[in-house]
Design a binder for these strands. Structure first.
Length: 357
DNA sequence: AACTACACCAACCGCCCTTTA
DNA sequence: CTAAAGGGCGGTTGGTGTAGT
C-alpha cells in the first residue's frame, strides 16, 4: 500500500537530491517531457522512483516556481482560500501561480506553530472543569486539521453534543473559543459572523440565505446545532464555505481559523452566526430567541454595506476579511483569481471550487 | 566558541482517486 | 465489471540553518 511498483526497487536512492540529479532530471524533462513518471528515472538515468522525480520537479525544479517570502497579498489569499477549502493545499496552490502546495503547506504549518505557541487564553475560555483527554486536547488546537483520524468524531463529539450537553459545553467553548474568528464577508452574499457574546450559546446560528446560493432560512440551536449547521450547509451546497461546523471528515471543521489570525484583540466570540442578506443587511441571530438582548454586530439594526465595512474596520481584527478587499488587493496580481461577475464574488469562487472539488 | 532550541523546508509515506487493461 | 498501476494529495518526518544562551 502506498508504494508504487517503481518505488519497490531496491536501487532507488532516497534523501536530498544532488545537483547532478537535478540536472539530469531537468535535462530529461525539458527535452522529453515527463509523460509517465515511472519511466522518467530510468530514461533520465536516475536512481530514484518516479514519484520522487515527480515531487522534485513539481516542488523544486519546475521553471515557473516562484521562491521567496510570501507577499501580504498571497498571505491574505491563502487565509481566505483556506477558510473555504481547508487543508486542500493543491487547490490553494492553484490560485497562487508559482507556489506549490508543499510550500503553502509548510508556510501554513510553521505559521500555526508560531501561533499555537502563544500563551493560551484565560481559563474562563478553556475547558478548565473537565479533564482534558488527548482527543480534547487535540481539538483545542483548531489547526491540527483533522487528520481527523486521530479523533473519533462519533465517540467524542457526538457523545458530548448529544449525550452530555453539560459536558459538551466546555468542548464547545474549546472548539469555538477563539477571541477572533475568521470572518469572510462578501459584497452581497452570505456573511458568517460570530460576534455576539452572551445571548446565544456557542453553536447557535441562524443562517439566512438569499439569492444566488439558495433561498432558505435555517435555524439551529444548541442541541444538535453542529449537525444542523452542517446539514444546512450541505443542503445549500455551501459546505465548503463554512468557516466552522464539523465535517464528515472529522470532528470539526478546521477551516475555522481563529487564533491563527488573532492579534490580541478580544473582539467577539464565536457564538452567533449572522447572515447578511442580499439587501446587505445584518441581522443578529440573537433576535430569534432573545430579542432586544442583542450585542455585537448589528444590535438588531441593519447595516448597509459601507457601515459593515466600517464596523469591520472598527473591530481591528485581521480575521475579518471582506472578499472584495482581498480581490482588490489582487487586482495588482491578475490571474490569481478567476474573473467573476459583479453579482457575487463569493458565489463565483464557490462555484469554481465546487466544480473542481 | 560551543551548545541548545527553534524554524524552515525538502522529501518521504500512506492513502485515495482515476485511468487502463 | 474488476483489479492493478499510476498520479495526486495531505500529513509527517528529518536534515539543515540560524538565533539565543
Amino acid at each position: 500500500m502506498g508504494h508504487h511498483s517503481c518505488c519497490n526497487q531496491q536501487k532507488v536512492k532516497r534523501g536530498l537530491w544532488s545537483p547532478e540529479e537535478d540536472e539530469k532530471l531537468v535535462r530529461y524533462i525539458t527535452t522529453h517531457g515527463y509523460g509517465c513518471w515511472s519511466e522518467v528515472p530510468e530514461k533520465a538515468g536516475l536512481q530514484r522512483c518516479g514519484k520522487s522525480c515527480r515531487l522534485r520537479w513539481i516542488n523544486y525544479l519546475r521553471p515557473d516556481i516562484r521562491r521567496g517570502r510570501f507577499t501580504q497579498e498571497e498571505e491574505k489569499l491563502i487565509i481566505s482560500l483556506h477558510s473555504i477549502v481547508g487543508n486542500r493545499w493543491a487547490h490553494i496552490a492553484s490560485h497562487l501561480p508559482g507556489r506549490t502546495d508543499n510550500e503553502i503547506k509548510n508556510y501554513w504549518n510553521s505559521w500555526i506553530k508560531k501561533k499555537i505557541r502563544k500563551p493560551p487564553p484565560p481559563p474562563s475560555q478553556t475547558c478548565s472543569s473537565l479533564p482534558v483527554s488527548p482527543a480534547m486536547d487535540q481539538l483545542s488546537t483548531p489547526y491540527n486539521n483533522g487528520t481527523a483520524g486521530s479523533i473519533d468524531s462519533t465517540t467524542t463529539l457526538d457523545t458530548l453534543l448529544h449525550h452530555d450537553l453539560a459536558a459538551a459545553k466546555p468542548l464547545h467553548e474549546t472548539l469555538f473559543s477563539s477571541q477572533c474568528p475568521l470572518f469572510m464577508f462578501e459584497n452581497n452574499g452570505l456573511m458568517l459572523d460570530c460576534s455576539n457574546t452572551t445571548t446565544c450559546t456557542r453553536g447557535d446560528y441562524v443562517i439566512h440565505e438569499h439569492g444566488g446560493l439558495n433561498s432558505s432560512t435555517s435555524t439551529a440551536t444548541t442541541t444538535g446545532c453542529t449537525e444542523a449547521w452542517h446539514s444546512t450547509m450541505n443542503e445549500n451546497h455551501i459546505g465548503q464555505a463554512s468557516s466552522f461546523g464539523y465535517s464528515d471528515g472529522g470532528p470539526m471543521d478546521l477551516h475555522y481559523l481563529p487564533p491563527l489570525l488573532e492579534s490580541g484583540s478580544s473582539t467577539g466570540h464565536v457564538e452567533n452566526m449572522v447572515a447578511i442578506d442580499h439587501h446587505r443587511q445584518v441581522q443578529s441571530c440573537s433576535s430569534i430567541e432573545e430579542e432586544g438582548d442583542q450585542v455585537g454586530v448589528a444590535g438588531g439594526q441593519s447595516l448597509e454595506r459601507n457601515e459593515l465595512s466600517e464596523w469591520v474596520d472598527s473591530q481591528r481584527c485581521p480575521s475579518f476579511l471582506i472578499w472584495e478587499h482581498v480581490e482588490g488587493h489582487l487586482n495588482n496580481h491578475e490571474a490569481v483569481l478567476p474573473p467573476v461577475s459583479n453579482s457575487s464574488t463569493m458565489e463565483a469562487m464557490l462555484a469554481s471550487y465546487h466544480s473542481s472539488l
